[in-house]
Design a protein around this nucleic acid. Structure first.
Lengths: 119, 119
DNA sequence: CTGGATCCTAGAGGATACTG
DNA sequence: CAGTATCCTCTAGGATCCAG
């Protein structure tokens, strides 16, 4: 399947024009860490610490803010258990799982073509 | 198809770890304007001016630098015609077209789910 | 028409310390 | 363990002017 801005704009003329909601959502999910967090959570529910380790190099701040953005977007759900020590789990919502599947081909492409990248 | 960091790392343990080439390539193609440029070019060869109009809101600087990055990555090819006034056309390479196809599902997902986005 | 060259800024992102 | 709070850096990106 191809992308085709033209085709998408045939049904919605505002598709990916400046300041449209599509742009905002696209910026969220293609953010530096957003892609990696979704990819990590695609494997299933994870705790904060697991996620931090799975997404190599992420700072605590960016993990927190990206997760909050995704929660607000309804892509990730958070469940905190009232225990000592605390345990908090993050899971993709059904919508988030759709996203994970939609990103599958892109991730595969990156996986097989990383060698080509120039500086 | 799901993404699954785990699965990808089974074959390549370095997959999407910090400073790996995958990260670099991913940053290129998921950059703010990169996605939109690939999407626009997926419809076929375009001239500089067309591209500028198709990618609503892009500055000349970012159009130029993103195109140069993609050229260096082998995703886009540039052809300048020695005419007055100048005409320059940009086309996706075969590799770029693969990328465009890989991004298809993501674009569709964004198209159908933009309403959900929070601020 | 297709850019290159400059200058500038907002905000993404990082480092560190601290807390329930 | 799972975060918040601060402060700071840096660069992606924008605005503008200029040129072949």
């Amino acid at each position: 399947m191809k992308v085709s801005l033209e085709a998408m704009r045939a049904s919605d003329p505002e598709f990916l024009t400046a300041d449209c909601p599509h742009r905002l959502l696209l910026d969220h999910v293609t953010s530096k860490w957003g892609v990696l967090i979704v990819a990590a959570l695609a494997d299933g529910t994870m705790r904060w610490g697991e996620l931090r380790r799975a997404v190599d190099g992420i700072s605590e701040k960016m993990l927190a803010t990206t997760l909050r953005t995704f929660e607000a977007d309804g892509l990730v759900s958070r469940h905190a258990y009232p225990e000592i020590p605390p345990r908090v789990e993050y899971t993709l919502t059904p919508l988030g799982q759709e996203l994970a599947e939609a990103m599958g081909p892109l991730m595969e492409w990156v996986g097989t073509n990383a060698a080509i990248v120039g500086r």
